[in-house]
Structures are given as structure tokens and as C-alpha cells.
Amino acid sequence: MLMRKYAYWISTGLISLLYLASATFYITQGDTVRQLLGALGYPAYLVPLLITVKLLGVAAILSRVNVPLSDLAYSGMFFHLLLALSAHLAAADYAGAPPAVVGLVALAVSFLTQNAARARASPYALPRA
């Protein structure tokens, strides 16, 4: 049980840092991000939207005010990371793929172990042991 708590907090910290660093990069280097997204085939208007949802996703998971909202944030991050990975691979930008892979692994560990570390259980994660 204790190992699952550590796994939860370490993986949740990693995914939170990944998303906060990404949002910070998007805020401080907006023009560069627009060019990079354009090279991957995405429109530039997504930048403000991505900044917002990245910050709100981290807030929903860390605060966990509402378990369904937290689970929705997990699913949004899953699809975002999956699309990021596929976009980098499709554009032959293999250097951009590792953060998405690390994010997917950390996200899966965080989601699956959340019930071991949180008082209010998610019906979709592994049961408390």
C-alpha cells in the first residue's frame, strides 16, 4: 500500500511538472510554439486553448475537488499525450516523442494508483489494497 502511495505521488508530480513546464513554455515562447505546432500540422489558435486546459487539468488532478472532474482530466491528458506522440511520429520528429511516452507512462501509473493515496476513490482506478 505504501509503495502505491509513493508511486502515485511521484508519477502525479512528474505529470504535473511536465504539463506545467509545457504551459510555461507555451506562455513564454508563444511564437516558437505556434511554428512548432504548424510544423506538426496543427493550427496556431490552439495555443491559448492548450495553455488553459493544461493548467486546469493539473489543478483538477492535484486538488481533486471533484472525482469525476479529476477522471475527466486524466482522460483529456491521455488523449492529448497520445495525439502528441502520434503527431511527432507522423512528422518524423522522433526527438519530440520521448516526453509524450514518459508522460503516458507517468499518467497511467498516477491514474491506476490514485485510490491508494486519495481519500475519495475513483470508480475506474485500481481498488485500495
Rank of each mutant, 00 (worst) to 15 (best):
G30W: 01
M3Y: 03
S16Y: 00
S110Y: 00
S122A: 02
L62D: 08
A108H: 04
W9F: 09
G103H: 01
A7M: 06
G96I: 04
A44I: 07
A100S: 13
Y74N: 14
T24F: 05
F78W: 08
I10G: 07
A59W: 01
F111G: 05
D31E: 13
Y74V: 14
Y26F: 14
L72R: 06
R120Y: 02
Y42Q: 06
G103F: 00
V58C: 07
M77S: 15
G30K: 05
I27N: 05
L14H: 06
K5M: 09
L107E: 08
A125H: 03
A97I: 12
P98G: 08
L104A: 03
A108N: 10
T113I: 08
T24L: 06
G76E: 14
S86E: 13
L82F: 09
L104V: 09
L2K: 08
S11F: 00
A92Q: 11
R64S: 12
K5Q: 09
T113S: 15
L104H: 02
Q29K: 11
L36S: 11
L55I: 12
R128Q: 10
A87K: 09
L50V: 09
F78D: 11
A116Y: 00
L55G: 12
K5G: 02
N66S: 15
A60F: 01
V65W: 14
P68A: 02
L112R: 09
L69G: 06
M77R: 03
L112V: 03
G103I: 04
T32S: 09
L104T: 02
I27R: 07
I51R: 14
G41N: 09
V101T: 10
A44V: 09
P99V: 09
A44F: 01
V101W: 02
L49P: 05
L56Q: 06
P127F: 01
Q114G: 04
Y94P: 02
L18C: 05
P68F: 00
A7P: 04
R64M: 13
V53W: 03
P48R: 01
V102Q: 12
L14C: 10
S75P: 07
R34I: 02
F78I: 14
V47I: 13
V102F: 12
M1V: 07
M3S: 10
D71F: 00
A91H: 01
L81W: 00
A129S: 07
P123A: 14
A100P: 07
A91V: 04
L36I: 15
L14N: 07
T28H: 07
Y94I: 09
L40S: 08
P98T: 10
I27D: 04
Q35M: 11
P127G: 08
P68L: 11
A60R: 05
Y124V: 09
T113P: 13
Y6R: 14
V102W: 03
V47F: 00
A100V: 04
T52V: 15
D93A: 13
Y8V: 04
A73R: 01
S22N: 07
A90N: 15
G30R: 07
A84T: 10
A108S: 12
A119M: 06
L112I: 02
N115A: 02
Y74M: 11
S75C: 12
S75R: 12
T12Q: 06
A92S: 10
F79W: 15
Y6E: 11
A97G: 13
F111R: 03
R118F: 00
